[in-house]
Each structure stands twice: as structure tokens, then as C-alpha cells.
């Protein structure tokens, strides 16, 4: 574990050098919830019907915000590889006495630690500013699911960063992925309201699975059987992402 901690220590030192970076890492989900969520909540007014229950938009969107922050954190973390590659330190890392898996694990664990703070801030604001009826007994599990989400997306995007060697191409890839995955998912609206062709894509989207699990844990909406399937799907997605990330890292030079 020494090397995993060394990777985390290095990332912590780097993150500490930019307070703005640190602030946005912590505050973006909260800002999304307060600005976007509150605005939509007023616009939607009557609330959203999901699985036969009516909830207000803030309640519905909370899981989307948590899920979105996982995706955003993974984007930021995977972008770091381009800077490291430009300076050359990336290649030096690969000659350090650690496995490729330890390197990736360190990266993701650091981001997971950051996410605990993110989740606490977001859930506190949800409860006390927006009065969302949270399932507090599920908070520890929510944190775990957020961590799993970050890991899954980080490994998937890291694979992209290792395979796509150009910064600008990766940027385009991210924009497309961001657009498709976020808007064809249950993040912003219930997928039952989508046309069938879009609905099927959304069902196959890991971001939908992750958001649905988080929604179940935070406000208790969702069918247990479906949630179980979605957990299984996301764990497979995580395992495959990790496998491909390690594989791509081995060929990254």
C-alpha cells in the first residue's frame, strides 16, 4: 500500500496548490443543486412522477447531482494524465517500483477521499437548505456508491486518456461522452418520459444505473429488483473499466 499512498500524497500536494481547483471540486455539485435544481424545481412546479410517486425536482435531482459530480471528478482526474505526459513525469512514474494497478488505485482513492467531503457538503445542503427528506441511515452506503461511481468512470475515462494521446481529441471525446451519457440517462429527468428509442439507450447507460442506485439510497425511490440489477451492471462496468485501464496503461508509452 506504500505506493498507493504515495500516489495519493502526490495528488494531495498538487491539489493543494490551487485553491480555486479545490473549491470547485468541493462546491460544483452543491452549486448545481442550488442553482440548476432550484430553478428547475420552480419551473416544474407540480413535481415529477417517478415509479408512481410524486417528488419535487430538488428531491429527484439530488441523485443526479451526486452522480454528475462522480463523472466530473473522473474527468478532472483523467485529464491530469495529459499534463503529466507533457512534462514527461508520467513516463518516469511508470519506472517507479509499483504496479500499474497500484498507480491507478492511488489515483482513484484520492478522488474518493475528496468525494466524501463533496457528499457531506451536498447532503447537508440538501437537508438543511432545500429540506429534502433524506434517508440518513443510508448515508454511509451512499458514500460507498459515490466512490464506486468515481472509480468506474475514472477507469473508463483513463482508458480513453491512455489510448487517445492528443489532448484536443480527448477533449472532443469527453464533450461527446458528457453530452450523450448525461442527457440520455435518468440524471435530469425520469427516463420513462423519453421516447422508446432514447429510453433503451438510457437503460443501457451506466450513468443511469449509478443515478438510480443513488436515488434509491437518498430518497428511497426505485424498485429493489431493478436497483439490484443496476448495482450488478455497474460493478461489471467497474471491473471491465479497471481491466481495460490497466491494459491501456501498459501500452501507454
Amino acid at each position: 500500500m506504500t505506493h498507493v499512498f504515495a500516489v495519493m500524497y502526490r495528488d494531495a500536494l498538487i491539489r493543494r496548490t490551487s485553491l480555486m481547483w479545490l473549491f470547485f471540486d468541493m462546491a460544483v455539485p452543491l452549486l448545481y443543486l442550488l442553482m440548476f435544481g432550484v430553478g428547475f424545481d420552480k419551473a416544474v412546479g407540480m413535481g415529477i412522477i417517478i415509479n408512481g410517486s410524486t417528488v419535487n425536482y430538488n428531491e429527484f435531482f439530488l441523485a443526479g447531482v451526486l452522480s454528475m459530480s462522480c463523472f466530473g471528478s473522473a474527468i478532472n482526474q483523467s485529464y491530469g494524465f495529459f499534463h503529466d505526459r507533457e512534462t514527461g513525469i508520467f513516463y518516469e512514474f511508470l519506472t517507479y517500483p509499483m504496479t500499474r494497478g497500484e498507480f491507478l488505485l492511488g489515483k482513484v482513492l484520492f478522488q474518493c477521499l475528496m468525494s466524501i467531503i463533496q457528499v457531506v457538503i451536498t447532503l447537508t445542503a440538501a437537508k438543511f437548505l432545500l429540506h429534502i427528506p433524506l434517508r440518513f441511515e443510508q448515508v454511509p452506503l451512499t458514500v460507498v456508491v459515490v466512490m464506486v461511481g468515481i472509480a468506474g468512470w475514472f477507469y473508463a475515462l483513463a482508458t480513453g486518456a491512455f489510448v487517445i494521446r492528443r489532448n484536443d481529441t480527448f477533449n472532443t471525446f469527453l464533450n461527446v461522452a458528457y453530452f450523450i451519457l448525461m442527457f440520455i440517462s435518468s440524471m435530469f429527468y425520469p427516463i420513462e418520459s423519453l421516447p422508446p428509442w432514447l429510453r433503451y439507450i438510457a437503460y443501457a447507460n451506466p450513468l443511469t444505473w449509478h443515478t438510480d442506485v443513488l436515488r434509491y439510497l437518498t430518497i428511497g425511490i426505485g424498485e429493489l429488483a431493478t436497483i439490484g440489477l443496476e448495482i450488478g451492471g455497474f460493478v461489471i462496468f467497474l471491473a471491465l473499466s479497471f481491466y481495460f485501464a490497466v491494459r491501456a496503461l501498459k501500452k501507454a508509452v
Partner: peptide, 12 residues
Amino acid sequence: VVLQENAVDSFI
């Protein structure tokens, strides 16, 4: 290993 690039951690 010292590689050809000036590989240093530039932010720290």
C-alpha cells in the same frame, strides 16, 4: 531512471 524529457512534477 532519468529519461530524456525534463520530467519534474511542475505544480509542486
